[in-house]
Design a protein around this nucleic acid. Structure first.
Lengths: 249, 249
DNA sequence: ACGAGCGTTGCGTATAACGCAACCTGAAGA
DNA sequence: TCTTCAGGTTGCGTTATACGCAACGCTCGT
């Protein structure tokens, strides 16, 4: 048993998500009398969940923004992403990272370990190398160009491997590529035997709020096959973005 | 007459906005039987407006983010203004707000945080104080005089600081000034340590459809230097207005 | 000024939301 | 392992209340 009245109210919200509607349009969608719709809408209007303009057309209201903001604060990107990361981890069997840019650094927020017994020393809360980690490239690529340049000048370009980018120019060029293609790689730039790919998570405003990555030792999969995981990775990142409120249609 | 069932459902959403709740907690808040709460929540859970974890604790769900995102998209001014607001935020480093007048209230539609680590508690979807916020003054100043007067009588003139306007007469006089000069200020009228300036965004018909504001803690910039940001602010508002004219025709 | 279209209100009826109490489930303790 | 207890879940009778209908009102457009 569940409340059909509330179910109708939810259907109204979904319908209003498509665009502004008049009372009678909504009544037609629910296949009920317009009186009914009016009385369903009234409490929602009181709470500013829906609004009506001068022409009595209904639309979604500002209280929805407020609620969504509260919900995100409560849960954080981490818990929103968690089920999707778990799924990606299960599907690929590889190490999955979630990272965010916070005050000049890139921090790992969450991690799901590979099923294979290959140790990785990353840990939640640790900082990722700004010039080598795939997640860093994704996150930096969304920053304004001026900020990128300032950051690039401050970075210490520790040459972890022969592939590590060692100059601000090389990094900035790479970031342009990443911004254009919508994903990033780390081709043995931090560890000579590990390749990574990363994709951005965006919120409603379109801003990149986090990055998801797959890290794979080349004894498990050669570089080319890591790139073959890109579709799955990007699908995961898109799913997390969707749960953050990014419209998918 | 309106549906008390839906009203209860809305109260549930508001309560869940405060944090995770158990079934019985919610029942206590609504002062109804827990069975009732269960049946109210079920349709919302079906639509993923609320979610429950393994321990049967309810929280706001991802569909809420999706709806909020759709609602923001429906507000066309937001996406038109976004690039300009981002630019103003980057150029000044200060907190930028976009607000609109909707049905008797002023609502924040968008926000770009200051780079400086000074917390502001405003949030997208919240209402701005009609008698103190700079954006409110800009938006109210464009209303017909009769509407202004009706509104001024309804406002509760909460005296947030010593500078807060406390009478309808003072507000109406201020609105005349704002209408004449084309911008508004909030000189520590809401928070004793924050000054704001706001400028109007107009559509082709010349009507004010939104307001852009800068909010600056006086530890960062004293009042006089906030006023010095006015040209940049007005340029941004003018650019958004121009895009509104192009976009709508 | 008039009519059409849409939103709003009052009211009677039938639905379905409500509270109650019994039942289930899962966790903690002895 | 069995017991207990604290939640959540289900079935059912009652009555509140959500619903549809029809009449009314408001605002445009002609």
């Amino acid at each position: 048993m569940s409340s059909s009245t509330v179910a109708r109210a939810m259907r109204l919200l979904a319908e209003l998500g498509e665009g502004e509607r008049t009372l009678e349009q909504l009544a037609a969608v629910l296949d009920v009398h317009k009186t009914t719709v009016l009385r369903l809408l009234r409490p929602m209007e009181d709470e500013r969940i829906v609004q009506r303009d001068a022409a009595h057309r209904y639309r979604l209201g500002p209280q929805l923004f407020a609620l969504a903001g509260l919900a995100l604060e409560q849960r954080g990107i981490r818990s929103v992403a968690a089920p999707h990361l778990r799924e990606l981890n299960a599907a690929t069997g590889q190490t999955v990272h979630l990272a965010a840019y916070e005050g000049g650094e890139v921090v790992y927020i969450d991690k799901y370990d590979s099923r294979h017994p290959v140790r990785m020393y990353s840990r939640i809360g640790l900082r990722a190398g700004l010039h080598c980690a795939a997640v860093s490239k994704v996150l930096l690529a969304d920053l304004p160009v001026t900020v990128r340049q300032q950051l690039a000048d401050k970075i210490e370009f520790t040459p972890f491997t022969v592939n590590t980018l060692t100059t601000p120019e090389a990094l900035l060029a790479e970031l342009d590529t990443v911004a254009a293609q919508g994903w990033a790689q780390d081709h043995a730039e931090h560890e000579s035997f590990i390749n990574c790919v990363a994709a951005p998570v965006r919120d409603v405003t379109g801003r990149v709020v986090a990055a998801v990555s797959l890290s794979v030792p080349d004894i498990l999969l050669p570089y080319e096959q890591v790139l073959a995981l890109l579709p799955q990775l990007r699908a995961t990142a898109a799913a997390v973005s969707a749960d953050c409120g990014l419209a998918t249609h």
